[in-house]
Design a protein around this nucleic acid. Structure first.
Length: 420
RNA sequence: GGCGCCGUGGCCGAGUGGUUAGGCAGAGGCCUGCAAAGCCUCGUACACCAGUUCGAAUCUGGUCGGCGCCUCCA
């Protein structure tokens, strides 16, 4: 099993199974309902975990929830904690509807404050961080490897707004002193405040996975600064941290990244209602995890056509034939789901397909729902009409069946009812 | 200004030195009372320009275009 790693820009081999694999995925900042693009890392993580387990690995997947952040303060002045709690519930509800299960742990930043403080103290002690008026900053020049993950050269990083508390404008905050209007805080050795954005992930990953783990996953837009800073903090503190960095490509709407600032948002909840979970999952499968993916009516309709195609296969008898090994090989080589999907399209073997569906949460594609008795009754009357060659009556009955949401098909031994 | 990704047939999308990707859509046919489903047949594509090579969509250089990041972002 190998995966493309952002740090080395190469496909890196995982140890052979059975091995323990630690995975950490950067989850959402909870202040509003997530959009379909936010769901991509969650989906990829769950799929990858499932595949690795099928291959005999012992996987532990941790996905954090960032529930303390500037965005949350801004979105809910004076009741940031309530918003964070509500939005956490929305997130769990919306992703639950994808039917892929939960990570092994979903820690919240606000439940990891002691570990965060301990880690910051360690960094200060070793000279990697310094306190300034209740803030704590990471000292970039003490970490020579800074910039390696993202390819950024520290001397070229764009200057931000000057902050007189920083010794170097590129230093980033580990702890932020409480400010006016920020209604959630904790006491710390540096006074009342709250953690910076990056340190929480270093602390949570270590708390649940230990000082080193195999795979760190997150959106491509997190490479810099977020993951660069996580890595700097953890490695400065003597931890190996992540061995493989997987960055998923971004979802685009109208050729642009789907993001709140552009305003081109399709909430996951709404997309699921409109298209159904199988279509959404198959849509994600059509693109390699590392590549951008375009969200549009056309691409979703194409995904739905695949859904219909797979369902159709289960209305016909299973036909032996097909090769699990090619499917497995596609996933083993950088978890290439479009390739795996192409292999699946060649299969007519129900058991083989069911196995593959299991990896991607698509088991429902193999289940045909039964028509209600009144529709079966109409179909039976239609069968009799056809037997007496009363085709006008047969066509009238077909229209009634369609009005009830079903399609009547004539097959060798009678009829078949298919949901429309 | 710096860093990075990408450009494949009508659409989506693998491949990455010489052999069919696959799906969707489309055309014709078989089957059917008519359909649906299924099956058969039909597309020789890799942004552009040079170069390397016996041979390049695949390697190298350049050009053009799209996208992302540069301390809020999945």
């Amino acid at each position: 099993m190998r995966l493309f790693d952002t740090l080395t820009k190469a496909k890196v081999d995982l140890p052979d199974p059975p091995a323990r694999i630690g995975m950490y995925t950067c989850g959402p900042t909870v202040y509003q309902r997530i959009h379909i693009g936010n769901a991509r890392p969650y989906v990829i993580s769950q799929w990858l975990k499932c595949w690795l387990e099928l291959r005999g690995y012992d996987v532990k997947l941790v996905e954090n929830i960032t529930d303390i952040n500037d965005r949350i303060y801004e979105a809910a002045p004076n009741h940031s904690a309530e918003l964070a709690a509500d939005a956490t519930g929305w997130y769990l509800e919306d992703t639950e509807a994808l039917g892929l299960g939960r990570p092994d742990a979903e820690p919240k930043a606000t439940e990891t404050i002691p570990e965060i403080i301990t880690l910051i103290e360690e960094l200060i002690e070793d000279g990697y961080a310094y306190e300034a008026e209740g803030d704590v900053y990471f000292r970039i020049e003490r970490f020579p490897d800074y910039g390696r993950l993202s390819g950024q050269r520290p001397d070229q990083v764009e200057e931000q707004e000057p902050n007189p508390l920083k010794q170097d404008p590129r230093d980033f905050s580990l702890w932020k002193a409480n400010k006016e209007g920020e209604d959630t805080w904790w006491d710390s050795p540096w006074g009342r405040g709250r953690p910076g954005w990056h340190i929480e992930c270093s602390a949570m990953a270590e708390k649940f996975l230990g000082p080193s783990f195999d795979i760190h996953l997150g959106g491509l837009d997190l490479v810099f600064p977020h993951h660069e800073n996580e890595r700097a903090q953890s490695q400065a503190a003597g931890r190996e941290f992540a061995r493989i960095w997987m960055h998923n490509g971004l979802l685009r709407l109208d050729r642009k990244k789907m993001s709140k600032s552009v305003g081109n948002i399709a909430p996951l909840k709404d997309v699921l209602v409109r298209w159904g979970r199988e279509t959404v999952l198959l849509f994600f499968m059509t693109a390699h995890w590392s590549k951008p993916i375009d969200f549009s009516d056309e691409t979703m309709a194409a995904a739905r056509a695949r859904v219909d195609g797979f369902r159709e296969i289960f209305r016909a008898p299973s036909q032996a034939g097909g090769d699990w090994d090619s499917f497995a090989a596609a996933l083993e080589d950088d978890f290439n789901t479009p390739e795996a999907l192409a292999v699946m399209h060649g299969w007519r073997d129900h058991e083989l397909l069911r196995r593959a569906f299991g990896v991607f949460g698509l088991a429902a594609l193999a289940e045909e729902q039964d028509a209600p008795p009144e529709v079966v009754e109409l179909a039976e009357r239609r069968r009799q009409a056809r037997a007496t060659r009363d085709f006008d009556e047969a066509d009238r009955l077909r229209e009634q069946i369609e009005a009830a949401g079903w399609e009547a098909r004539d097959v060798a031994d009678g009829f078949q009812l298919v949901p429309k």
